[in-house]
Simulated assay, not measured.
Amino acid sequence: MLTGLGHAALAEFTPTGGLRVDVISVSPKGEIWVVECKSCRADFVSDRKWQGYLEFCDRFFWAVDADFPEDLLPQGSGLIRADSWGAELVRMGPESRLAGARRSRLLRDIARVSTTRLMALTDPMGISGGAS
Rank of each mutant, 00 (worst) to 15 (best):
T14L: 02
S128K: 15
A131D: 12
E31H: 06
T14G: 05
F44T: 05
A111S: 11
V35L: 10
A42M: 07
F13Q: 02
C57N: 01
F13C: 03
D109R: 00
R91H: 06
S104G: 10
V23I: 12
E55T: 15
D109W: 00
L121W: 10
P94H: 13
R112V: 15
L72I: 08
T14Q: 10
Q75L: 11
K38L: 07
R20N: 02
G76V: 00
V64L: 01
S132N: 14
E36Q: 04
L79C: 12
D43N: 10
G86I: 11
M125E: 15
T122K: 03
G100F: 03
S114L: 04
F68T: 07
A42H: 02
R117V: 06
G129H: 06
W33V: 02
D22H: 07
T3Y: 02
S25R: 02
L89D: 14
R117L: 11
L79Q: 09
W85P: 14
L89P: 12
G78S: 07
P74I: 01
L106H: 03
W85G: 14
G93T: 08
P28Y: 00
T3K: 10
V34R: 03
A111R: 08
P69V: 04
D58Q: 01
P28E: 05
D109H: 04
C40A: 12
G76E: 07
S96Y: 12
A111P: 15
E31Q: 09
G17A: 14
R81K: 10
L106M: 09
V23N: 05
S25D: 06
K38C: 12
P124E: 06
R105M: 05
F56A: 00
D43P: 08
D67W: 06
L72G: 06
P94D: 15
V64D: 00
D43Q: 09
G130V: 06
R97A: 09
V23F: 08
A66N: 10
L72T: 08
V23M: 08
A82V: 14
G130I: 00
L79Y: 08
G126A: 15
D58P: 04
L73D: 04
C40M: 02
R97H: 02
D47E: 04
T115P: 00
D22P: 11
S96R: 15
W50Q: 07
A111E: 07
D67L: 05
R112D: 13
F56N: 01
G130F: 05
I127M: 07
V21S: 07
H7E: 11
L89M: 14
L73H: 05
Q75H: 13
W33F: 07
R91Y: 04
T14E: 06
W50Y: 13
A131E: 10
F60C: 06
H7S: 09
G17P: 14
G86A: 08
E31A: 08
T16K: 10
V64R: 01
D65E: 10
T122H: 02
W50H: 06
R48A: 14
P15H: 01
M125D: 12
L19H: 01
